[in-house]
């Protein structure tokens, strides 16, 4: 908690204390550029992470709540087995509803592959029953056993086999996004620490004079910390703004759950990148302060 007032000082500024360190145009631009570039990348990592999160939630929700029963029976038994399946489903705990998919809807599902004029009635297509589960969910294994007894041609597909890897992939993509943000922050901290180290080395004489006249380490460190924190804040603000504009103009309808078409911010998500400049300033504050205090300990 002792650091909070000092972080406030970094933004409040002190013109007198600021002037004790000579201006250094190169390191100033370098720090600002680093912060801007890192903030720009962080905006994309954040957008990716949020999009992957939405995808994982969407697929996970669908996985948890829907299943399909496919009935492949000889022509004479199709209606009987379909009725048997619907009857079993109607009495199975955990199932909120079961809907026999009509033939025209099946035709629509197949249309992208076979064209709109597909004579569904003349093909030996299986019948499909869409199941919607309750929040508690059903016992898939128990249902399979009952279906094998009542309708031997019915196969329960609870989507687990193909949906779960997708959900896991989306979850990992989300994790990767957050990991990228962490790495971007750590890289920025390292680069600012290097810049601060160079600035402290270049101003060794200034530091010696200040120690000579009775300046405490915190006073000297503050002069450097304030400067680097401000540069990081300014740079990160520019980078964040540029990143948000770039995300906003990305092509895509923004409505779908896909990573590519859904990459971006929705609603209040747009507020999240606004925290990046403050986080960058905090990172710069910590990195510079740690560097300065370490270097100052080596000077009497």
């Amino acid at each position: 908690m002792r650091r909070l007032p000092a972080l406030g000082d970094a933004f409040a500024g002190d013109p007198g204390a600021d002037r004790i360190v000579p201006p250094s145009g190169f390191t100033a631009r370098l720090t600002q550029f680093t912060a801007a570039a890192m903030a720009f990348l962080a905006v994309f990592a954040l957008a990716l992470s949020l999009a992957a999160g939405r995808l994982a939630d969407h697929w996970g929700e669908a996985l948890a709540r829907t299943a399909t029963v496919r009935i492949s029976a000889p022509e004479g038994q199709m209606a009987t087995q379909t009725d048997a399946v619907l009857a079993v489903l109607a009495t199975t705990p955990g199932i909120a509803g079961a809907r026999l998919i009509p033939e025209d809807e099946q035709r629509a599902l197949l249309a992208p592959w076979f064209g709109p004029d597909l004579p569904v009635e003349s093909l030996p297509l299986p019948r499909l029953v869409e199941i919607t589960e309750t929040a508690e969910g059903m016992d898939a294994e128990a249902l399979r056993l009952r279906l094998s007894g009542e309708a031997p041609g019915a196969v329960l597909d609870d989507h687990t086999r193909w949906r779960r890897p997708l959900v896991e992939a989306a979850g990992r993509l989300r994790l990767l996004g957050w990991l990228s943000i962490g790495l971007i922050g750590a890289t920025m901290a390292a680069m600012i620490a290097l810049s601060a180290n160079a600035a402290l080395a270049a101003n060794a004489r200034v530091i010696e004079v200040l120690r000579l006249v009775g300046a405490r380490d915190t006073f000297i460190a503050r002069a450097f910390v304030r400067r680097f924190t401000r540069r990081a804040l300014e740079g990160a603000a520019i980078g964040t703004a540029a990143g948000m504009v770039a995300v906003a103009v990305l092509p895509g309808d923004g409505a779908g759950p896909g990573v590519l078409t859904g990459l971006g911010f929705r609603g209040l998500d747009w507020l999240l990148p606004l925290a990046l400049p403050l986080i960058a300033a905090g990172v710069a504050f910590g990195a510079t302060r740690l560097t300065a205090m370490r270097v100052l300990k080596g000077i009497t």
């Binding site: 120690r211 000579l212 006249v213 009775g214 405490r216």
Partner: peptide, 10 residues
């Protein structure tokens, strides 16, 4: 400590 040295130098 270093702070005490700084104060003493004043």
């Amino acid at each position: 400590d270093r702070d005490a040295v700084a104060r003493t130098r004043r």
